[in-house]
Design a protein around this nucleic acid. Structure first.
Length: 277
DNA sequence: CGGACAACCTGGTTGC
DNA sequence: TGCAACCAGGTTGTCC
């Protein structure tokens, strides 16, 4: 489900509704989604904490609490972190419930359980399991075309695989990697070293543009992603290649057909005609 | 070291 | 209808 735009959408919505509210108690229905502390310490540390801010780095959500405590949320493929509607039974696969002092319920739900919650100190974020291998955010002002160029330098992997690597810059997943490569007219199978400076610049611009456009549309919903208010995103209608195998290439004047190939076990969608190394 | 690949999970869809 | 195979927004460990 969640790449940078989807996590950013959740962050913005929760920032609007959660800041200043206090956790009264925590219920864990499964403990294997918890990191950084055992279940008992997890519950006891969060009890009585007030939400002060919500931040994000790449695909990770950072909930900053009173007392210098932080809760890191990674949604994996199917995770949701949102307020449960009042008066309705909690959905299946709800692993953690934070009962708020005002009666609200903040829940973590994740059928596939690739996501997790990690408890940490706000000043130790870089050492956490969730963030220790995560580079700068792909929408941070410091992530310039020059930084992208550095990130790709010396690599021999195909560019598509390099975009999914969160270590040098973070937030790009399978959908937006495909979409950015299409917008920049770059062949996803091209090796990093084969791109010239102009292509790297075009790719940087395409990455930032597609991430921003998706945030403006409140993210992409393929199957079951919903934002903090339970509403699906709108960007799936504006995807140009992802999930569009067999359709005509949407580039003006291009007569190609969108193809699907597999790269490092993930689907890549692209136009073999207008995306060139 | 980097890169390819399997593994981790559940659920929905497809095809026989 | 039933069931197996395949697919899915991510990350990590293992092997080369």
């Amino acid at each position: 489900m969640p790449e940078l735009p989807e996590v950013e959408t959740v962050r913005r919505q929760l920032a609007g509704t959660l800041i200043g509210r206090t956790i009264e108690r925590i219920t864990l229905r499964r403990t294997d989604v918890i990191r950084g502390a055992g279940p008992r310490r997890f519950r006891e540390t969060l009890r009585g904490q007030t939400v002060e801010a919500l931040d994000r780095r790449g695909k990770a959500l950072i909930v900053r609490l009173s007392d210098g405590v932080a809760l890191l949320v990674h949604l994996g493929m199917t995770g949701r972190f949102c307020l449960a509607p009042p008066g309705v039974p909690l959905a299946e696969h709800t692993h953690m419930i934070a009962y708020l002092a005002d009666g609200g319920r903040l829940v973590f739900r994740d059928p596939r359980r690739f996501g997790h919650l990690e408890l940490t100190c706000a000043d130790a974020l870089d050492e956490t399991e969730t963030l220790r291998n995560v580079g700068i955010d792909a929408l941070a002002p410091e992530f310039t075309a020059a930084r992208l160029s550095e990130a790709l330098a010396g690599r021999t992997a195909p560019i598509k695989a390099a975009l999914l690597d969160q270590r040098r810059f973070a937030g790009v997943g399978n959908i937006y990697a495909c979409e950015a490569l299409f917008r920049a007219h770059i062949d996803p199978t091209a090796l990093c070293g084969e791109l010239d400076a102009q292509q790297v610049k075009a790719l940087h611009r395409a990455l930032r543009a597609v991430l921003r456009a998706s945030i403006a549309a409140e993210g992409t919903t393929i199957a079951d992603y919903v934002n903090g208010n339970g509403v699906p995103g709108g960007f799936q209608r504006r995807l140009r290649v992802y999930g569009r195998e067999g359709e005509a290439c949407p580039s003006r004047g291009c007569t190609g057909t969108i193809a699907r190939i597999v790269q490092s076990n993930r689907s890549t969608f692209y136009c073999p005609l207008c995306q060139r190394a």
